[in-house]
Nucleic acid binder design. Structure first.
Length: 422
RNA sequence: GUGGGCGUAGCUCAGCUGGCAGAGCACCAGGUUGUGGUCCUGGGUGUCGUGGGUUCAAGUCCCAUCGCUCACCCCA
């Protein structure tokens, strides 16, 4: 091997890539039914957008961005997340001056410079959905429902929804201070003490038992929520219950991007190991102002498609695990002269909506039939000298071996009638 | 960024205290005229991740490097 993909790049090749397509389609379908429009936006942005949007105290900005100067000297960063860029695009194209909320979804690669491990890559794929321009708690619940329904459509059952509220600009600073005072009294290593000063909420997320143990009596945001935030949170909880979406209150749940406030949530999958978060999101009222826009509340979520694929693989067994989108009909041309006729036939079949493939190269009849068998097709179609002379094709039912000659012009109709009942 | 495990065929892997690169599956070609699956026969398809070093001799030992993997950290 002379070249390899750069470290940590997640790639999907057939047949496994079908699972990535399926995952993306499940989310896209759920989003479309909820009337979210498709947005295709920049894969790279001005570095400053992420510094100001995601936040200087976040690990993502401090040590995980792919940043570089382009040939024109512009400071560029490959997107480490979607929200900041999506909001920037919405503002740039003035979508927020029309009907609110602006509801959009997008999907594609995201980049973070981290040490790769199971479910964590440097180039990975997310589905992202945002609802911008309303504080209505119903839209908080809607985003959660869109994600929930996508997981359900994929057959994922081992999914848990964790829900929390991080307060807003009025009540969070009070809580932050109370938490900081509590944390300063603990026995922590130097790095964690630094985090206490920089981003104390993140300490709550620490998984190490020696830290965890000391956090039992830590103050929780829930006790500090202001009246408005408490009412908003109760409304969201009530609506989720009404939708039949089970959730777990997670007062310690904190997300790593600085812009989150109020509703914050995460979807965990039980079978994934250390990187168990398959999706997460929350409200980001104030982010628009942070990046130079007008006051514009928003909420959204992102789901990691790589982890969705892992989750599917961990839950599906047997035949269900095999994605099938193979040929329905497989052409076997006999002799070089028959290749043009066969290509014409399979093209006609495809235009009629049939998934058709054919044997290429100099395979013999036996090799061609073997290829037909392995393609999973229900029918093989043979064209040789005899058929060409008579304007016929020979159909072979690969399940029972029955053969029948059919006029070329009637081939598509003949097959459609039979494939429909398969 | 920290610590552990691992890189041999398309895939899963074997290869002992250094001695001519292997197995299963997959793949390809045959098993007399134009028919797949089961069966039989034949075929190895390889930069032993890469670069150095030790040695008469390195897949095997040493160093470096790249990548994979698991956990921490972080998050999707």
């Amino acid at each position: 091997m002379t070249f390899q993909a750069p470290k940590g790049v997640s790639e999907y090749v057939p047949p496994r890539s079908a699972l990535l397509e399926e995952a993306r389609e499940a989310f896209a379908g759920s989003a479309r039914r909820a009337c979210y429009g498709y947005l295709e936006t920049a894969v790279f942005e001005d570095t400053a957008l992420f510094v100001r949007g995601v936040g200087e105290s976040s690990d993502v900005v401090r040590k995980e961005m792919y940043s570089f100067a382009d040939r024109g000297g512009r400071e560029i960063t490959l997107r480490p997340e979607f929200t900041a860029g999506v909001l920037r695009s919405v503002l740039e194209h003035n979508l927020h001056k029309g009907a609110l909320p602006v509801k959009v979804w997008t999907s594609g690669p995201v980049f973070r410079y981290e040490r790769p491990q199971s479910g964590r890559y440097r180039q990975f794929y997310q589905f992202d959905l945002e609802a911008i321009g309303t504080q209505d708690p119903a839209v908080d619940a809607e985003t959660i429902a869109v994600a929930w329904d996508a997981y359900a459509a994929l057959g994922l059952r081992q999914v848990t929804l964790l829900l929390n509220s991080l307060g807003d600009r009025a009540c969070r600073p009070v809580y932050r201070q109370a938490l900081q005072e509590f944390l300063r009294g603990l026995d922590l290593d130097a790095e964690t003490r630094q985090r206490v000063e920089l981003n104390p909420l993140r300490v709550l997320d620490d998984k190490r038992p020696e830290v965890r143990g000391q956090l039992a009596d830590a103050p929780v945001m829930m006790d500090y929520l202001c009246k408005d935030c408490a009412a908003h949170h109760e409304a969201v909880r009530g609506m989720l219950a009404g939708l039949g979406i089970p959730f777990t209150d997670a007062p310690r749940l904190v997300r790593g991007l600085d812009y989150y406030n109020r509703t914050t949530y995460e979807f965990d999958h039980a079978l994934l190991g250390a990187q168990s978060g398959i999706g997460g999101g929350g409200r980001y009222d104030g982010l628009s102002e942070d990046i130079g826009g007008p006051p514009l509340p928003g909420i959204g979520f992102a789901s990691g498609l790589d982890r969705i694929v892992l989750a599917i693989e961990s839950e599906r067994t047997g035949a269900a695990a095999q994605p099938a989108a193979g040929a329905q009909v497989f052409g076997v041309p006999l002799g070089e002269e028959a290749h043009a006729d066969m290509l014409a036939l399979v093209t006609a079949l495809r235009r009629a909506g049939i998934r058709a493939d054919m044997a290429f190269g100099s395979r013999g009849l036996k090799g061609g039939m073997r290829a037909a068998d392995r393609s999973g097709a229900a029918f093989a179609v043979l064209i040789g000298a005899e058929e060409r002379r008579n304007g016929l094709v020979r159909m072979k039912d690969l399940k029972n071996g029955d053969q029948q000659d059919v006029a070329v012009a009637q081939a598509a109709g003949w097959l459609i009638g039979r494939l429909g009942t398969q």
